[in-house]
Amino acid sequence: MSGIRLPIELAAASFVAFAAILVLPHVLELFALINATVYVSLAVLALSLALVWGFGGILCFGQAAFFGLGGYSYAVAAINFGDTTYAVPVAIGVPALVAAALGYVMFYGRISDVYMGAITLTLTLILFNFVNSTAGDQWRVGAAPLGGFNGIPSTPPLNLPGDPGNPLPPEWIFAIAVVSLLICYILAKLILRARFGRVIVAIRENERRAELLGYDVRAYKLGIFVIGGAMAGLSGLLFANCVFVSPTMFSLFYSGQIIIWVMVGGLGTLVGPVIGAILLNLLTTWAGTLPEINPSLILGAILVLAVLVMPRGMLPSLATMLGRFRVAGGVT
């Protein structure tokens, strides 16, 4: 990686983001704009798993757990405070704390790959089952009823800090979502450039060797896992702002989809999963309008084909196809 590439990539990403903010609200109708906001929020989620799995090498089947926790803690905090200013740090902090606790159990317990998959999947299921069963008046946190299967339909939209009377319009929410995605991307880039990120990648490549070189593998893995959890929480917050929170956020369907986005987009890249999330969501929405074809069939077939035909994902495969001049280092 040459010194000039990082600033160019960051500038390009910022350009795309600001172009989207300036152009899309004028081009799209309101419904399409809200849909676009959903896709951007899910792209943040894809980015979080791209960090944890693609660079940290931790296959987490439960990224949806942090996504759902972020959404729920945002909704509960916003309803209780009556102002979303402090709900934002809560929505990022709670998933990060849960990720820290879970990560501590897994990494300091030296639990291996498959078992880690089982545990993260289990946590997601526990949350899904629990939240699903919280219908009725006895299940409320402060002023916020959890609502069981129906979720919290009255999730308040973001307002400007300290000004709870004025919820932001959808155009603002869209802009905030895009800027959040950009910030997360830049953060991820900087993390990977820093010493911390290099050690993370070294651990992914060869855990035993990194350990013998004196790095505390457990602490590094815990670190990237917590960052991923916080990012997924932010994504849940954004998602809650354009839809509303419901137990489906914790469902297997979401945890599965996130993995598909990252896998199809390109494991070990950052842009790939973001593009993968947006493209596959467009595809699912489009497939949902076809009466005779079930979207699950398409998604499933794509995943099977992706694993069989291009196990490295769309972006790296494209890069190899387009020319051999960018071999070493690859696209990140």
Partner: peptide, 15 residues
Amino acid sequence: LATWGLSLALIGAVT
């Protein structure tokens, strides 16, 4: 991952 995709595809096909 492949069997997960298969699982989604089977659900879709049977539906």
